[in-house]
């Protein structure tokens, strides 16, 4: 059943990809990521790859650090001034994430903001992991905060803090922060489809 569907999906993906590309007049902020290999592997893999392209981007990984230190920027440098996870992922006792980060981006300061701005819990350390390891970690209730697939899908596609990645505001110097490599709608449908297809993590 699975194999049969691939035949139909591939041409459609290819065509929409071309259409999308030709419609864009200005250079896009998104880097095309669909590799031929992924396409060959099938729709589920394609969805998986789209999702993972986003999850490993700095907009996501910066708040899933492996050392309790939030990261910043497209180079993922350690947060300046020694900010750290603190006891509840919200910073230190008085100087917290919310000392500077509010529920919206601030275009005057270039400080990003969204509701519930915080680090992902320590169990969700993704930084430095392979895509497969991140996906495994994400699906593992021991590490994902006890979320089932439905709840995961909600976090990935509806949580405002996650969706902030597509409206990341400007940097301190006023230039726009880099977006994740996949457009939001494409990402959402890829995530949903991947879960509907059984959330299969392909072998690397």
């Amino acid at each position: 059943m699975k194999k049969a569907s691939i035949v139909y999906v591939i041409p459609i993906l290819l065509v929409t990809g071309i259409l999308l590309a030709s419609n864009l007049k200005a250079p896009t902020a998104y880097i095309p990521v669909s590799s031929n290999e992924a396409v060959k592997k099938g729709a589920s893999d394609e969805n998986y790859n789209k999702m993972m392209d986003v999850l490993v981007s700095p907009r996501c990984i910066n708040c899933h650090p492996n050392d309790n230190i939030p990261k910043q920027g497209d180079d993922g440098h350690p947060h300046y001034f020694g900010m750290s996870r603190g006891e509840n992922n919200l910073g230190y006792q008085a100087t917290k994430c919310t000392t500077c980060h509010q529920s919206e981006n601030n275009d005057y300061s270039g400080v990003p903001g969204a509701p519930e701005w915080s680090l992902a819990p320590a169990s969700m350390m993704w930084e430095g992991l392979s895509r497969k390891e991140i996906a495994e970690s994400m699906l593992d209730p021991e590490r994902n905060g006890g979320r089932n697939h439905e709840e995961l899908m909600h976090h990935l596609t509806e949580h405002e803090l996650v969706l902030w990645a597509w409206e990341p505001g400007v940097r301190a110097d006023g230039t726009p922060r880099k977006l994740p490599p996949v457009p939001l709608d494409e990402y959402i449908s890829a995530v949903k489809q991947w879960f509907e297809d059984g959330a299969v993590i392909p072998a690397e």
């Binding site: 000392t99 500077c100 509010q102 529920s103 919206e104 005057y108």
Partner: peptide, 13 residues
């Protein structure tokens, strides 16, 4: 009672 840096805090909040 919470520490806030006011240059990055919109007045509407």
């Amino acid at each position: 009672g919470e520490e806030v840096r006011s240059c990055s805090y919109a007045v509407k909040f």
